[in-house]
């Protein structure tokens, strides 16, 4: 079956999900991001690749970090950038997604970065845009958030280059987490030998083990000897019904504290996609501790997004 993200000759045209992406493309993104890390450390932090191109960030759902890092990434590639918080403008006046997209296309946009609360929104847009336009999914419902997944994998690779013998644990609200899905697909495609998920049954999707992960419900068991701990945000805004007794109870069982961190390998790194609920899924002492790489994740996010944009914009049918 043809992957809708790829051109006929197998190059990346849209980035909608990490699921089903060939390992070679994942590696190309990570290797290219490595080059962009150096660009950010120079006197002039820009390269001319997207000069004359217009990137539209269309955010149907709120976000600060993702929107900002996409904006910086596009600007450092010399693109012109427009950011629309559609939730607060046309959509509230009744315009459909495709009307919004058609209008931006009429303004000669070259790339759309899309965030939407509905799963499949970016995919839907990618199917309907003009052939020269590239679409990046910046988070769709519970489905996928591929650039976050990739920047997490990039961060892991930077701190733990020997990826072929790593043990990675994702902890928390896997059920509602598009980040977790994107990470799991990327990690398994790249051949990480052991990916664990640690969560209460109520916060795990059914048949999660089919994604190639090992399931733990007890943090004290699941964290044993892991190299990487990826804390997931408790998605309060996505919770319907009584999945959890209380935030305090959750912290007691699944919050990452210094004591629980001590179960992992001594040089384990701690990650979090942000925004953090301190005292709910992670203790401040850990979030600000010396094993935390949460802020480098943000920095690397720009390099990874620059890599994705510059690879896409260069690949035409």
């Amino acid at each position: 079956m043809h992957n809708p993200q790829l051109t006929k000759d197998g190059k990346l045209k849209h980035l909608l999900t990490t699921e089903g992406l060939p390992r070679a493309i994942l590696n190309q993104i990570l290797d290219t991001a490595e080059s962009f890390v150096g660009v950010a450390e120079r006197e002039v932090k820009k390269v001319p690749l997207l000069r004359g191109k217009t990137v539209c960030n269309i955010f149907f759902e709120n976000s600060t970090r993702t929107r900002t890092t996409f904006e910086i990434a596009a600007k450092r590639l010399s693109a012109d950038v427009i950011t629309l918080n559609v939730g607060t403008s046309s959509q509230s006046k009744g315009e459909t997604i495709l009307d919004t997209v058609d209008n931006l296309t009429a303004m000669h946009a070259d790339m759309f970065v899309v965030r939407h609360a509905e799963s499949g929104a970016a995919h839907f847009i990618a199917q309907h845009v003009a052939p020269h336009i590239h679409v990046i999914n910046a988070g769709d419902g519970r489905h996928a958030h591929p650039t976050q997944g990739l920047l997490d994998v990039f961060t892991i690779r930077r701190y733990k280059p020997e990826m072929h013998n790593l043990r990675v644990a994702l902890v928390g609200d896997v059920l509602h987490s598009r980040v977790a899905r994107s990470e799991i697909h990327a990690l398994t495609t790249l051949g990480i030998p052991e990916v664990r998920v640690i969560a209460p049954k109520t916060l795990l999707p059914q048949h999660v083990e089919k994604l190639g992960v090992q399931v733990y419900h007890d943090m004290n068991e699941g964290l044993k000897d892991v190299d990487v701990i990826m804390m997931l945000r408790l998605q309060n805004e996505r919770m319907n019904g009584a999945l959890l007794p209380s935030a305090q109870e959750y912290f007691k069982c699944y919050g990452l504290t210094q004591e629980k961190l001590a179960l992992a390998k001594p040089d384990a790194i701690v990650m979090h996609p942000g925004p953090m609920n301190r005292g709910v899924e992670i203790d401040s002492a850990v979030a600000d501790g010396k094993q935390s790489v949460i802020l480098p994740q943000v920095t690397y996010g720009i390099a990874v997004r620059m890599a994705v944009m510059s690879i896409l914009a260069g690949n035409s049918e």
Binding site: D31, E34, S35, G38, V47, I311, G314
Partner: peptide, 24 residues
């Protein structure tokens, strides 16, 4: 130096498949 980000054939050929970090 890896000058991939400055090449004038980017629009025709896309980003070079193997970019390496410049080290200055």
């Amino acid at each position: 130096l890896d000058s991939s980000f400055y090449r004038d054939d980017y629009n025709q050929r896309g980003l070079h498949a193997e970019t390496r970090p410049s080290q200055i």
